[in-house]
């Protein structure tokens, strides 16, 4: 299956593909907002509580304190080597900073917002899937946001060709894997992280491709929300 996919992705001659996307919102009854996001076979479940009561030490006087927990499927969070090739805690930080950038936390000072992301399966592009799940979770909870954001992962193959939304195998073979968080207001970059080496030109190429892909993902967000509110 993976090889067929590979050929399909790579053979397009400059044309890149995003794997099939699906999402479900509000699937958990307890959290204030929840969403499952599935990219190909990679899936992440997000559950969000807040704005709610905050513990004394975490309280911020001017805005809501956002906490992000990324839970791996096997082993303990933040220390597991499988998820944490870049460190689970580091990914948590990246997601938190990205969410903080769009969340209008000043509207809810002295409160806590807890976002829990549970990895359901990791077959490549996990971080971008986490970001997408986080955004849909925030949307489902109805928290005020300055804009939306989405995550896009690009892989650079050894021959220099660019791949969007790579599978785990493609990520392994790739020379560099770059993940961007892009906001919906004017396609600006909220976060970027890279593994492997690439030139400045390749970085710009990946970024340009990610921005194109982001447009597709935002259309997907819009369509899924339109469907959700179609009976209101």
């Amino acid at each position: 299956m993976a090889t067929a996919e590979e050929e399909e992705d790579g053979g397009g001659g400059g044309g890149c593909c995003l794997r099939p996307f699906s999402c479900e919102q509000g699937l958990l009854s307890r959290p204030d907002g929840s969403a499952a996001f599935i990219q190909g076979d990679t899936s992440v479940l997000a559950g969000l509580y807040g704005p709610g009561e905050v513990k004394g030490s975490k309280e911020l006087p001017d805005q809501a304190a956002l906490e992000v927990l990324l839970r791996p499927k096997v082993g303990l969070p933040a220390v597991t080597p499988r998820l944490g090739r870049g460190g689970g805690a580091q990914r948590e930080q990246l997601i938190r900073r990205t969410c903080e950038a769009v969340l209008l936390g000043a509207l809810h000072p002295r409160t806590a917002v807890t976002l829990v992301l549970q990895v359901l399966s990791d077959i490549g592009s996990l971080l971008s899937c986490c970001l997408n799940a986080a955004c849909l979770g925030l949307l489902d909870a109805g928290l005020p946001l300055a804009s939306l954001f989405c995550g896009v992962t690009c892989a650079l193959r050894p021959d220099g060709r660019l791949l969007l939304d790579p599978t785990a195998r493609q990520e392994q073979e790739a020379r560099a894997v770059l993940t961007f968080a892009i906001d919906s207001a004017d396609g600006k970059v909220l976060a970027a992280t890279a593994k492997g080496s690439c030139s400045a030109e390749e970085l710009q190429q990946c970024l340009a491709a990610a921005q194109r892909a982001a447009a597709t993902i935002f259309r997907f967000y819009r369509d899924s929300l339109r469907r959700k509110y179609s009976k209101w």
Binding site: C16, Q25, S224
Partner: peptide, 11 residues
């Protein structure tokens, strides 16, 4: 209606 799917999308 809370679920939505998208087929493989070319960029």
């Amino acid at each position: 209606i809370t679920a939505f799917k998208m087929e493989r999308a070319a960029v």
